[in-house]
């Protein structure tokens, strides 16, 4: 798989607006001195980085270095944790997200989790359209169409089209994860956050999801946390290396893995620690 240089990525013109409020920008996400504290203990500190539109950015680093914490601050998930404090700025398409309702932000910033988590009481079909249904869209014909389209995008349609009405929990782990992806893109986000989306899956399911991520690049900005260095190298354009809550290095993936600037990064990517 060829690794693209970020400069080569031309932002495609879409006729849809993808800013929360409607205007467009080349920078999908920008954080300025972002820090998150749990019970007054810092989990990440002073993270400033820019993520370009329609790129895949990988976040790597040893366990507990704050990768998930960083990712979860981008869709305001820390609102749910009373003991969490978030400082600094987060801009999505140049707009400060704190000025928007968390619900609206999350519609634009989707998330896929480490463990597949389809809604256990729902069928495959209901899961696929759950985001829309829960937000009040109920027209059957539209929902049917959306379900089919997004299950196709997620590469699951052929496998499930004959059993859409069966419980989602009857699917395999890999299928469940693709269903979760279908569910996420059905809400039409611009940005998809993925927190180790393949770490609970077998190699074949993993490669299917990697393929999806690669194909999604034209439509979405993807930020993916991974523990798998090969995976980062295979699918991402840029890579950020976190260590003990700090951003150590952020550069093009190829460079990160061949010629890192920092000693620490080199030690990590060559497996000297971690």
């Amino acid at each position: 798989m060829e690794i693209q240089e970020t400069e080569d990525i031309v932002t495609e013109d879409t006729d849809e607006t993808d800013k929360i409020s409607g205007r467009e920008s080349k920078t999908a996400i920008q954080t300025k001195k972002l820090s998150v504290y749990f019970n007054d203990r810092p989990a990440i500190e002073d993270i400033s980085l820019k993520i370009k539109r329609n790129t895949v950015t990988a976040i790597i680093g040893p366990s507990g270095c704050g990768k998930s914490t960083f990712l979860r601050s981008l869709n305001l998930m820390h609102d749910m944790t009373p003991k969490a404090r978030v400082y600094g700025e987060i801009l999505i398409q140049n707009e400060d997200i704190t000025e928007f309702n968390a619900v609206d932000v999350r519609k634009k910033v989707g998330m896929v989790f480490q463990k597949p988590n389809p809604f256990p009481t729902m069928t495959i079909y209901e899961n696929a359209v759950s985001g829309l249904k829960l937000n009040g869209k109920t027209k059957k014909s539209e929902l049917d169409e959306i379900a089919e389209k997004n299950l196709k995008y997620a590469g699951l349609w052929e496998e499930v089209k004959d059993r859409l009405k069966t419980p989602a929990m009857s699917l395999s782990g890999g299928q469940q994860q693709r269903l979760c992806i279908a569910r996420t893109i059905a809400v039409r986000p611009d940005i998809i956050l993925m927190d180790e989306p393949t770490s609970a899956l077998d190699p074949i399911s993993t490669s299917k999801i990697e393929e999806l991520i690669y194909n999604f690049k034209n439509h979405y900005t993807i930020v993916i946390v991974t523990h798998n260095m090969q995976q980062a190298a295979r699918i991402s354009d840029l890579t950020a290396f976190f260590y003990l809550g700090k951003l150590i290095e952020y550069s093009k993936t190829r460079r990160m893995f061949t010629n890192p600037k920092e000693k620490l990064t080199e030690a990590y990517v060559t497996g000297k620690f971690g």
């Binding site: 619900v103 932000v105 519609k107 989707g110 998330m111 463990k115 988590n117 985001g131």
Partner: peptide
């Protein structure tokens, strides 16, 4: 599980 709540919230559900 907490992950179920988060899955729903992440879809922009209140």
């Amino acid at each position: 599980p907490q992950s179920l709540r988060e899955a729903s919230l992440a879809l922009g559900v209140s």
